[in-house]
């Protein structure tokens, strides 16, 4: 099993956390993980992209070049640049709370998830990233939801322990289908 994933968004949306959590969840499953990231030049308000490869074997090339199995687009500003990262036949999740119209791209399966709105309803807008990840786990099984939940505790550590509850709630809500919106 090998999966390549791209998480792209605006700085501050937590897309790097999505990538990190994916890796940590994979490690919970005793798989290997490699992650790389790019940021815009600016310290604030730029773009952020996390690239992830997870595999139950040794990982050769860690690079993603239009061959991602899953591509998560969390913000309209990065749609044009990163929709091409998805492989033909891949899955493109987009945050429909912010990306108002379905992106244009052939031969991929779209997953519309109103992550920001759903997280807002849960009481923490910033947990949109976790809602999206939970939904992705339900739809694709790229990593089990339980691995995500336990990896989350490790990722947040002692310092951010107070954030575990709301983020796990968002993960599980996303997994359960969130606001039951049409797929």
């Amino acid at each position: 099993m090998k999966k390549k994933l791209v998480f792209a968004g605006s700085g501050g949306q937590g897309v790097i956390s999505m990538a990190t959590l994916t890796c940590l969840a994979a490690i919970e499953c005793k798989w290997n993980a490699v992650m790389s990231q790019t940021y815009g030049i600016e310290q604030r308000g730029g773009t952020a992209v996390g690239f992830v490869v997870i595999s139950d074997e040794e990982i050769g090339s860690p690079m993603i070049e239009e061959d991602a199995d899953i591509c998560c687009l969390m913000h309209p500003m990065i749609v044009d640049a990163h929709i091409k990262d998805a492989a033909s036949g891949g899955i493109v999740l987009y945050n429909s709370s912010l990306v108002k119209s379905e992106p244009v791209r052939e031969s991929v399966e779209f997953l519309s998830v109103p992550a920001t709105d759903a997280a807002q309803e849960l009481g923490e807008r910033r947990a949109a990233n976790m809602f999206a990840l939970g939904r992705l786990s339900a739809e694709t099984g790229f990593v089990p939801i339980e691995a995500l939940c336990s990896a989350l505790e490790k990722m947040l550590g002692e310092k951010k322990k107070h954030l575990v509850e709301i983020n796990q709630k968002a993960l599980r809500a996303g997994y359960a289908g969130g606001c039951n919106e049409e797929k």
């Binding site: 890796c23 992650m35 860690p62």
Partner: peptide, 9 residues
């Protein structure tokens, strides 16, 4: 620099 900033097991 790409490898330097890459995170892995």
């Amino acid at each position: 620099g790409v490898m330097a900033q890459m995170i892995e097991t």
